[in-house]
Nucleic acid binder design. Structure first.
Length: 210
DNA sequence: AGCACGATTAACT
DNA sequence: GTTAATCGTGCTC
């Protein structure tokens, strides 16, 4: 019986990133997430892609971070333990996937902005309306559409073995190949937050957002 | 109750 | 380069 359970386990879920990976300074987590594999289990399919772009949102002081409004029903997951998903709705039509970082009670998260598709490309294309591969997941709302991530995936524990969303170690991009630049789409966010170089992306990677 | 504004995308000119 | 689409959230009245 025990061996049956072990035999039925998904081997890959055994190397999900542990919670202590996420309970660290948000900018470190954002940089180290580049090269990791974002995995989505959907209807028996395994969809995945290498994270190539991510942004850090750090605390109530960061006026670009939703936690600037304090603890609300929307932001409360950011005040919880690291390693949980924070999924929110914006522009009346788009979903964004973040991973909570740092300590409990300190609200911070990393926005996953782009992945390079690896597994389940056919399923992603169906979900996206048969787009070409470079357009499948090259933006934060594109990848949630390609992976079918919405409100129902808010507050999931990505470190739990059976999680339908997980992050696994994969490749490592040398630090010289990673760029740091201002976060995208901040519009009316005041300085200095608007210009903080907290967006990390793999240089010259065609799967980064455009 | 009403309002302005999004951590965006796709489809224009 | 510009703009419509579209609605939850947080803030003001």
């Amino acid at each position: 019986m025990c061996s049956l359970q072990i035999g039925s386990m998904n081997k890959t879920s055994l190397h999900q990133l542990p919670r202590n990976f996420f309970s660290r300074p948000t900018r470190i987590v954002a940089q180290e997430l580049l090269g990791c594999l974002l995995v989505r289990h959907l209807n028996g399919h395994r969809l995945s892609g290498v994270i190539v772009e991510a942004e850090a949102y750090i605390g109530e002081e960061d006026l670009a971070c939703h936690a600037k409004a304090g603890r609300t029903s929307r932001t409360q997951v950011m005040y919880g333990p690291a390693g949980f998903s924070y999924v929110y709705f914006t522009y009346g039509m788009h979903w964004m996937l973040n991973v909570v970082t740092e300590s409990e009670e300190f609200p911070a998260a990393v926005l996953i902005r782009a992945i390079q598709p690896v597994e389940g490309v056919d399923v992603m294309q169906r979900l996206r309306g048969r787009k070409e591969i470079p357009d499948l997941c090259s933006g934060p709302a594109k990848l949630t559409q390609a992976l079918d991530i919405t409100r129902a995936q808010n507050g999931l524990d990505l470190c739990q073995l059976s999680s339908r969303i997980a992050i696994e170690p994969h490749t490592k991009f040398p630090s010289g190949t990673v760029s740091a630049s201002p976060r995208i789409g901040l519009g009316n966010t005041p300085e200095p937050w608007k210009s903080k170089p907290w967006r990390y992306a793999v240089r010259d990677n065609p799967f980064v957002s455009k």
